[in-house]
Design a protein around this nucleic acid. Sequence first.
DNA 1: GTCTATAAGGCGATAGAC
DNA 2: GTCTATCGCCTTATAGAC
Lengths: 195, 195
Amino acid sequence: MKTRSVREQLVEHALVLIRRRGFNGFSYRDLAELVGVKTSSIHYYFPSKDDLVLEAVREYSARMQARLHAIDSNLPPAEQARQYLAPLRANAGTDQACLVSMLSADVLVLPDAVRAVMQDYIRGNEQWLARLFERAAAQRETPYQVAPQQLAQVVYGALQSGQISARLFGTTERLDAAASLLANAMPVEPELAHA
Amino acid sequence: MKTRSVREQLVEHALVLIRRRGFNGFSYRDLAELVGVKTSSIHYYFPSKDDLVLEAVREYSARMQARLHAIDSNLPPAEQARQYLAPLRANAGTDQACLVSMLSADVLVLPDAVRAVMQDYIRGNEQWLARLFERAAAQRETPYQVAPQQLAQVVYGALQSGQISARLFGTTERLDAAASLLANAMPVEPELAHA
DNA sequence: GTCTATAAGGCGATAGAC
DNA sequence: GTCTATCGCCTTATAGAC
């Protein structure tokens, strides 16, 4: 049982609200009621809504970076891919989408600082995937027909789109299709030695 | 010089507004000013905002279906792919994204009828691509490693994501990567006979 | 069909007491 | 830090004159 500061609770619930309804889809009132404070208290921590969303996207991006870093790059590529995909599948059943995808609709009215973090988030994912493809390529029998970086952009795009589709269709069909393509691009794992 | 009815103008400008700022990002006031009427006149044609967005997404989907139907299925697959991709590239320079992508963020609060049209739109694109892959497979030397339907879902997802990314990054890099993957999946065109 | 006028409430944001 | 109170504006939507 851990007690979080009001500020932490605000960010935590803001993450959920944005991932559910987007930047224009929730209000300070919604957030205040979830945390159990008055709207004026939110303004104490985050003077404007732009400040709040900036903090939320920073936190979201930092957590993803931590997750990517936590995957052991010495593991077989197929296992790394599995660990990367696991939380995507888990979230797909939720009514929460990727925060960066949700904010993408509001790109024209979001501050530059927010856009910059969104770009970092996507590039971070693409780079992680690209490096995975690079290492995987060395272990594969047949080479890739496209550069790792391009392959990473296509696969990551399909995964993002697949997550969005999961909410619209109520099925992980498209996310699974993208995940399969990633999994199939991994080299076949050598059998584990057992005595 | 064609004169459009007020109703047609409302739908036309609604398409632009939604594709720019999303469902929650524009108001009846914005739309009224663009068309040059009062907000109460919009309510005459579209009693609620849900009615307006339903008409907009229907029109958007119908136009895409017409475009898909206009591509001659007897052309070489690579040429069909080119015709499919051309308008995507053209729109990528604009500040307008795909209407269905924009509405995806608001899926939790949109009426079922709107969601149904959004699903039709995506399935229509995927089916068109899947059939293209089916015909292309017959003409290729090397077979695809995934089913046409799955390949279509991944490619379409990457294209959708690529269009969204174009607004965020200000570059068509990711859209191009997805487009290249589609183009490369087409069979090599036989040389044209010339005398 | 289009307007004026207005309802009824939501919005982000601020001032100032405690 | 958190509250009450309020500002000024925007929102969707309706009633009724023309």
